[in-house]
Amino acid sequence: RLYEREDHKGLMMELSEDCPSIQDRFHLSEIRSLHVLEGCWVLYELPNYRGRQYLLRPQEYRRCQDWGAMDAKAGSLRRV
């Protein structure tokens, strides 16, 4: 689950498959919190699986710093 605000607030989007462009699919370029329910995912800073990568394991991420990012920029997401 992807959230537009910290602490799992605001608009929530659910994802169960790879997403090459978060902007195209959800009209957002920033994700401020996440909740990974199962499996491991890689969040990429840019669309089409480019830029900085962040490995996400099943857990709650209340803010972008929790997954190691300096800002909430999110371009794509892929399951590993």
Score class of each variant (00 low, 15 high):
Arg1Glu: 03
Leu2Met: 08
Tyr3Asp: 02
Glu4His: 05
Glu4Asp: 11
Glu4Gly: 08
Arg5Gln: 15
Arg5Ser: 11
Glu6Val: 06
Glu6Leu: 01
Glu6Phe: 04
Glu6Ala: 08
Glu6Trp: 04
Asp7Ala: 09
Lys9Trp: 01
Lys9Leu: 13
Lys9Gly: 10
Gly10Asn: 04
Leu11Asp: 09
Leu11Pro: 14
Leu11Phe: 14
Met12Arg: 08
Met12Leu: 09
Met13Tyr: 12
Met13Pro: 00
Glu14Phe: 10
Glu14Asp: 06
Leu15Cys: 12
Leu15His: 04
Ser16Asn: 14
Ser16Phe: 12
Ser16Met: 07
Glu17Leu: 06
Glu17Trp: 10
Asp18Leu: 00
Asp18Cys: 04
Asp18Thr: 02
Asp18Lys: 01
Cys19Lys: 05
Ser21Asp: 13
Ser21Met: 01
Gln23Glu: 14
Asp24Arg: 10
Asp24Gln: 10
Arg25Ile: 05
Phe26Cys: 08
Phe26Gly: 07
Phe26Gln: 03
Phe26Ile: 05
His27Lys: 11
His27Asn: 15
His27Thr: 08
Leu28Lys: 14
Leu28Ile: 15
Ser29Phe: 08
Ser29Thr: 14
Glu30Tyr: 11
Ile31Asp: 02
Ile31Glu: 00
Ile31Gly: 00
Ile31Arg: 03
Ile31Cys: 02
Arg32Cys: 10
Ser33Tyr: 07
Ser33Thr: 00
Ser33His: 01
Ser33Asp: 00
Leu34Tyr: 05
Leu34Pro: 04
Leu34Cys: 11
His35Cys: 10
Val36Gln: 04
Val36Asn: 03
Leu37Trp: 02
Glu38Gln: 15
Glu38Met: 10
Glu38Gly: 10
Glu38Asn: 15
Glu38Phe: 10
Gly39Thr: 01
Cys40Met: 13
Cys40Ala: 14
Leu43Cys: 04
Leu43His: 03
Leu43Thr: 04
Tyr44Cys: 07
Glu45Arg: 07
Glu45Val: 06
Glu45Lys: 06
Glu45Ala: 10
Leu46Glu: 15
Leu46Trp: 09
Pro47Arg: 06
Pro47Cys: 12
Pro47Gly: 05
Pro47Met: 02
Asn48Tyr: 14
Asn48Thr: 02
Asn48Leu: 13
Asn48Gly: 13
Tyr49Ser: 01
Tyr49Pro: 01
Arg50Asn: 09
Gly51Glu: 04
Gly51Trp: 09
Arg52Gln: 11
Gln53Val: 03
Gln53Met: 08
Tyr54Gln: 03
Tyr54Met: 04
Tyr54Trp: 07
Leu55Val: 12
Leu55Glu: 13
Leu56Cys: 02
Leu56Trp: 00
Leu56Ala: 01
Arg57Val: 11
Arg57Thr: 15
Pro58His: 05
Pro58Ile: 05
Gln59Asp: 10
Gln59Ser: 12
Glu60Gln: 15
Arg62Thr: 09
Arg62Leu: 13
Arg63Thr: 15
Arg63Tyr: 09
Cys64Thr: 10
Cys64Leu: 02
Cys64Met: 07
Gln65Ala: 13
Asp66Trp: 04
Trp67Pro: 01
Trp67Thr: 05
Trp67Gly: 00
Gly68Leu: 06
Gly68Thr: 00
Gly68Lys: 05
Gly68Ser: 07
Ala69Trp: 04
Ala69Val: 02
Met70Glu: 15
Met70Cys: 10
Asp71Phe: 11
Asp71Cys: 14
Asp71Gly: 11
Ala72Tyr: 07
Lys73Leu: 10
Lys73Cys: 10
Lys73Arg: 15
Lys73Glu: 06
Lys73Asn: 14
Ala74Met: 02
Ala74Thr: 11
Ala74Phe: 05
Ala74Arg: 00
Ser76Arg: 04
Ser76His: 03
Arg78Ser: 11
Arg79Ser: 10
